[in-house]
Design a protein around this nucleic acid. Sequence first.
DNA 1: AGGGCTTGCTTTAACGATTAAGCAAACGGA
DNA 2: TCCGTTTGCTTAATCGTTAAAGCAAGCCCT
Lengths: 345, 345
Amino acid sequence: MSKKKVSLKDIAEKAGVSTALVSYVLNGKEKESRVGVDIAAKIRQIAIELNYKPNYLAKSLRSGKTQTIGLIIADISNPFFANIARIVEDEAKKNDYTVIIGSSDEDADKSWDLINVLLNRQVDGFIIVSSENTEEQIQYLSSRNVSFVLLDRHFPAIPTDYVVLNNYHASYIAGTHLIEGGYRNIGLIAYRSQLFHMQERIRGYVESLRDAEITFHPDWLTEVDFGRIEPEIRAGIDRMLAADQPVDALIFSTYRLAISGLKYINELGLTVPDDLAIVSFGQAEAFDLYYCPITYLQQPMEALGKTAVELLISKLKDPEQPPRQVLMEATLIARNSSKVKALVT
Amino acid sequence: MSKKKVSLKDIAEKAGVSTALVSYVLNGKEKESRVGVDIAAKIRQIAIELNYKPNYLAKSLRSGKTQTIGLIIADISNPFFANIARIVEDEAKKNDYTVIIGSSDEDADKSWDLINVLLNRQVDGFIIVSSENTEEQIQYLSSRNVSFVLLDRHFPAIPTDYVVLNNYHASYIAGTHLIEGGYRNIGLIAYRSQLFHMQERIRGYVESLRDAEITFHPDWLTEVDFGRIEPEIRAGIDRMLAADQPVDALIFSTYRLAISGLKYINELGLTVPDDLAIVSFGQAEAFDLYYCPITYLQQPMEALGKTAVELLISKLKDPEQPPRQVLMEATLIARNSSKVKALVT
DNA sequence: AGGGCTTGCTTTAACGATTAAGCAAACGGA
DNA sequence: TCCGTTTGCTTAATCGTTAAAGCAAGCCCT
């Protein structure tokens, strides 16, 4: 496409020098390479005149670096991840990196595909929001000495760089908040997943009950299959409400589960928070719009995204450095959906 | 990073032939290049053994093609665009293209930046959701003979390839739907924008009123500044409700306006649809979750994204072909927010 | 048998940039 | 004056791939 590009050679010819000199000057290596002051000025001048833009492909081929980061995200249609993507992109650009985003759609095969495509494209490193059953992919990258940072989710068994939420604590806070609001029979809806962040969310919830000396009732925990969210949430909520000790509050461990669950709660004609108090992970416009604004755990998205980029870039500079791990805290944004329980007199 | 890559040379050495032969074989040019059948087989064999992966950088440098598409989106945090991005990515991958996504955040300067970065990265072509005041950017690309397809928004004054919604008709349908539901005083909230798609949405609305012989009242139209959505929507709704002929129905011309508007309507304590019927462009989980599900104009996202990719790829194959324009229809999904007006007796 | 075609491969240049190595001219020191 | 250093530039190799051009051996045809 388009007009012929300006290359070093064009500048060299116009200046009557070799391409080497031009390269030295335009890369600020005039000192080390003993380039004459006047010719350097002339070269710079001509470069501007011709509006020279270096060819990244050639640069990359030579250097083996593409200044490109591969971002593999579990689900781009989730607004949380879409925002993370935007933040990562911005931050990367500030550091002169370009980001190639791929969505694995929570599918291990798609994730493999993406990794291979991006490796082929010679990305310098990865930021990865891992899906289920992708440990081997992470191991593979590790074994090939590819630089990467895990974001939002990590595998405790594999020593890697990562930036994640303190999911245990976030969940614990959510449980405690409801308990302090007078709710006693608190349910949790989570994904049926081996992913550590999900296990931690369950653990935090369970321990918040235990610390308040509330006996956890197995019926209060619904684990939902990723592929069958709708029906399993319905069944789960039904079961929770029909339990010996029916739940009076629900924690949703992700945004998507909350959306689905709230729809069903609407259908059932239940009122939030009188019939059922709600706290959810994630954040979304939908929560503001709900007739009763939803209490949610706010994740430090900016910080998560920025830190991931920082860690990766620092790793790219010095691949030998030991892995760094960052744990961040969520903030509970209390709203009406979890307001102090009305006394039943 | 990582182990040394396998190159054509490695295969050539192992097979005891020149790299040229290897290149011919692995590119399926054995016939034209008269490569011996047995040596071809041997080369292929070795390539598999060594797990050869071609170096895209070198290929691209040589060919001038990167098999990469730049996707510039007006706002990635908008779920509509995030979904479009995903569809474009999938479709591109099917055609062996990689997508680099950039969000211009509705900002012309950022859009310029992105275009330059991506041009420097030698993308083969662009798919662009234009922001306001970016005609000159489109003109520039045109004049440089860069291949691109406009998506969702276009500039009628510039002859380009594009794939957009029939915004006029969509808006007309929305208006007509409300009129048929018995609403007479219908307001529209739109962006204050010169972008053609927005103008068309306004035109469609106005003409739906005219065709129903309803006199359009200027107070019924609120145009909102992109940077000041919240306050201007509030002011606009206040004005519409205080008008001589207060509105009994509202059309939101984008998803984001609807979210903002509905929040305020909630605050005012108005009931949808009894106090105010609603129809909105865009689609989102939030609309399902609202206590009264929102009627919306469903856009053929799949088709939009896929067609854009198709047009672009076909343009890349033959850059000389005349521009093609595609107009798609929205479907009105009627729900409770616009149900037939209860008779006031 | 000698000229031309076919077959099967190699050589070489090129894409655009970087960089080690080389080389001539000018300069400095004793 | 002579040798060694510095200065200022060029040459050439390299990254991995492609493709035009070249070349030797074997074939056919008359």
